[in-house]
């Protein structure tokens, strides 16, 4: 059952991903991307990372993609006026991405051996365990990400605000 779920979700994710990059209309791209995100959230649940899954939905589907969607709508960018790249460029892009994929799959050999069979701890995905790790080991990154967000806020304001002074 769960195995079937895995492959189903994988299929959905990849298919949706493919649609994202091929859809003509950006709004459709956004929607496909949301589907892909939901599939990935499903994977997280399969991996027993419920907290992650929920946060993933909240952040990606709930915030980021809404922003995308509203920008597309606000700027009325749904018109299909994207000039097509030449076929050579398209081919080059496909080849590049394909090579990347081939490289990755090529490096897979012997992967089983590197993942030591650790005793599985099903608590790691829980809020408590995550919180402990986050606020003990990863306190500093947590703190400094404030800088990141603050600069993003400043940036969004200064770039888009109509009248600065």
């Amino acid at each position: 059952m769960t195995q079937f779920l895995f492959y189903f979700l994988s299929f959905v994710a990849v298919a949706a991903g493919l649609m994202v990059i091929t859809a003509k209309n950006p709004v459709h791209s956004v929607l496909y991307l949301i589907i892909a995100f939901f599939a990935i959230a499903g994977h997280y649940i399969l991996l027993n990372a419920q907290f992650l899954a929920i946060v993933h939905i909240i952040v990606y589907a709930g915030a980021i993609m809404v922003l995308f969607l509203s920008v597309i709508m606000l700027l009325n960018l749904n018109k299909d006026n994207e000039p097509a790249k030449s076929n050579v460029l398209k081919l080059a892009a496909a080849v590049a991405a394909g090579l990347l994929l081939v490289t990755f799959t090529g490096t897979l050999k012997g992967t089983e051996s590197i993942i030591a069979a650790q005793p599985y701890d099903d608590q790691i995905g829980y809020v408590k365990a995550l919180g402990k790790v986050l606020f003990n080991d990863f306190l500093l990154p947590f703190e400094v990400s404030a800088l990141l967000l603050l600069s993003a806020i400043i940036g969004a304001v200064v770039l888009v605000k109509h009248d600065l002074k």
Binding site: V27, L31, I34, Q50, F51, I54, V55, I57, I58, A61, G62, A63, V66, L69, S70, M73, N78, Y126, V127
Partner: peptide, 25 residues
């Protein structure tokens, strides 16, 4: 009973906006 129930509420709320956005658009 989700151990992260509050977040679930939050997540569902946050995707609730799509219905309106998609319909409106």
């Amino acid at each position: 009973d989700l151990n992260i129930g509050v977040l679930y509420v939050f997540a569902v709320t946050s995707i609730g906006v799509y219905g309106i956005m998609i319909g409106g658009w």
